[in-house]
Design a protein around this nucleic acid. Structure first.
Lengths: 342, 342
DNA sequence: TGTATAAGTTGACGCGCGTAAAATTTTGAT
DNA sequence: ATCAAAATTTTACGCGCGTCAACTTATACA
């Protein structure tokens, strides 16, 4: 498949019998050249493995075919999973996704965005850290680069926000739990980094009031993104005390719940619906591992696909199409997943 | 901090009162210019936020400051964690890591490597899929780009391999298990994609023989990278049968074990060391979640830091230094982590 | 077969920076 | 103050490709 090494478009144009500007057109949009011409080029493409120099291309473009994907933490399988989905969509649309984790660190979030800017990306999909984010830095970034926020909303930032409807999560879990037993106590971090956590607490309080029930929120200490550990420690303390008056616990998110279940196991507290169980635990997110906890975790699932697809779709709208001045927010409903823990 | 927009090095050289070639030298190595000159440039750097165009830079370099990091799956927190470590080291050394997951798909592995090639990376850290990898494609890639393999070894490929010593894993777990109870049955996938799995089986057989014990290997069906699911299904079947004669199970890796524990919980089989327990389960890897299973998982830990640090170090050796013709393999010993499951 | 129109060709310039050679200035040690 | 070495400046070219203008050729429809 090789006769002679092709080192630039000039040489490739030569061996394919087409002029360089036309070859250039072809690579920018194969459909923009005549079918016979396309044939010649593609035939040459099989004989010689030439590929346009990506740096030379991008130097002469205002924006590249790169899509930045930024998540708070790739150690969280939830984000790993959603990133996978997003990457796939981008590739399908002919873009090059560049994936970044900020590892829970606001300063790295700024750094990543800063580095991303110099890549002249066509657009960026950003799941911000939330409360800890450097709002001003992100705001500046969003002015320069088409950005769609997902998962965590920062008010008025970015061209759009796509996420899950936190009220839908909490409403469904509470509905189920109260209908099948007693009302849940809400278990969460005292100062959650993620804005979704706050929304879920509000949703809990709201929903409980609507149902005429007395809310009860337990907030555990802990900073950072080691949610399992925080949940575990909090639960160990809780289960060693008499603070927990309800037999039903609703965790703000699955990672806390995973820690909670580990603590319950360790303390010999039986969780689930079986006759010998004394506690029910449910949660939100449908974390990839929530199927494999002991007991398996009753939770409420994000519509992963919908969120990732819509995020990408929205971004492409902004990139290609109208600078629709209105910032749209799109929330997808969640879906209750019944398992053994509640 | 801004008076006038700087769009290229020419203009920046102008406002800093230094010639462009010298400014260019500065950005390539700040230490290569006189201290007074450096001062002027850095002062200007504070007033104007100029940054050299990365594409123009890379066009004129044979190799860039990019380091490719390729892992089999980012949905596996093990790789997410090791990738985090590696990224950090690269940044500290002034390189730009570019992270890719091949999502367990050999064809994507080739695609990623292919795309990486056009980025002219200074080097690549690759954790190959293993058995499923397209060996020839990787071989070709390694000829063009300095590549260090980690985690999974492909014989004779890449400039070096850095990983954990599988014999060390299995030896320690078996030693512990036999000393504290009966000899373990080995639980694994029938056709594991990862070469480490095969090495662990051999280590198991070898070690058992050395101890004068009868080995017993149970292989469960399943393809792909959904190890928890495979472990779960296999364990459900196993625990419903009478195949399992030992009261001690040693899983090939933690993800299988997580599935195993979920199955045991569901089947009401008590795992652990307490009086009412009928089964012990141990495993290998010290997966980030293995602390939070029910019961917490006794396992053998990789030396995460050592592996990632050494991988990066080796790669830099190859990049900067001598084309040491000998391909080195470096294996780090593992460390037993005692928890509740065995 | 002729003609309007789309597509391709030629030639040339620019992008922002690396880098080399030659000339000039600065530095540091005598 | 003197002078060789080191650093900087000037000048200039090249990298690979996007893109424009002015032509020339191929296509399609009448």
């Amino acid at each position: 498949m090789s006769e002679r090494k092709i080192k630039n478009m000039e040489q490739f144009a030569e061996v394919s019998g087409i002029s360089r500007p036309t070859v250039s057109k072809y690579f920018n949009d194969p459909g923009s050249v005549r079918k016979t011409t396309r044939g010649k080029i593609e035939k040459a493409l099989e004989r010689y493995d030439y590929r346009p120099n990506i740096f030379a291309i991008n130097q002469n473009r205002k924006l590249t075919k790169t899509i930045g994907v930024v998540v708070p933490s790739l150690s969280d399988p939830f984000f790993a999973e959603i990133a996978r989905n997003i990457e796939q969509r981008c590739i399908e649309s002919g873009y090059r996704p560049a994936l970044y984790s900020v590892h829970g660190d606001p300063s790295q979030e700024v750094d990543v965005l800063d580095g991303l800017r110099s890549l002249k990306p066509a657009g960026v999909l950003l799941a911000p850290l939330g409360r800890a984010s450097d709002r001003k830095a992100i705001e500046t970034f969003c002015r320069d680069v088409p950005t769609v926020l997902f998962d965590s909303n920062l008010e008025d930032l970015g061209a759009a926000f796509v996420g899950s409807d936190n009220y839908s999560f909490v409403s469904q879990s509470i509905d189920y739990l109260t209908r099948s037993g007693s009302a849940p106590t809400f278990f969460e971090m005292r100062s959650p980094a993620n804005p979704n956590a706050n929304k879920r607490r509000h949703a809990y309080l709201d929903k409980m009031e609507k149902l005429g029930l007395t809310p009860n929120v337990i907030q555990v200490e802990g900073e950072g993104w080691a949610f399992e550990e925080i949940g575990y420690r909090g639960a160990i303390r809780l289960l060693s005390s008499d603070e927990l008056t309800s037999d039903t616990v609703l965790c703000s998110n699955d990672r806390l719940a995973i820690g909670f279940l580990a603590a319950a196991y360790e303390k010999g507290v039986k969780v689930g619906l079986k006759p010998d169980c004394t506690l029910r635990v449910a949660s939100h997110d449908d974390h990839p591992f929530s199927r494999f906890t002991g007991p398996s975790l009753t939770t409420v699932a994000h519509d992963y696909d919908a969120v990732s697809n819509k995020s990408v779709e929205k971004l492409f709208d902004v990139i290609e199409g109208g600078e629709s001045d209105v910032r749209s927010e799109m929330l997808f409903p969640a879906r209750l997943i019944l398992r053994a823990s509640a």
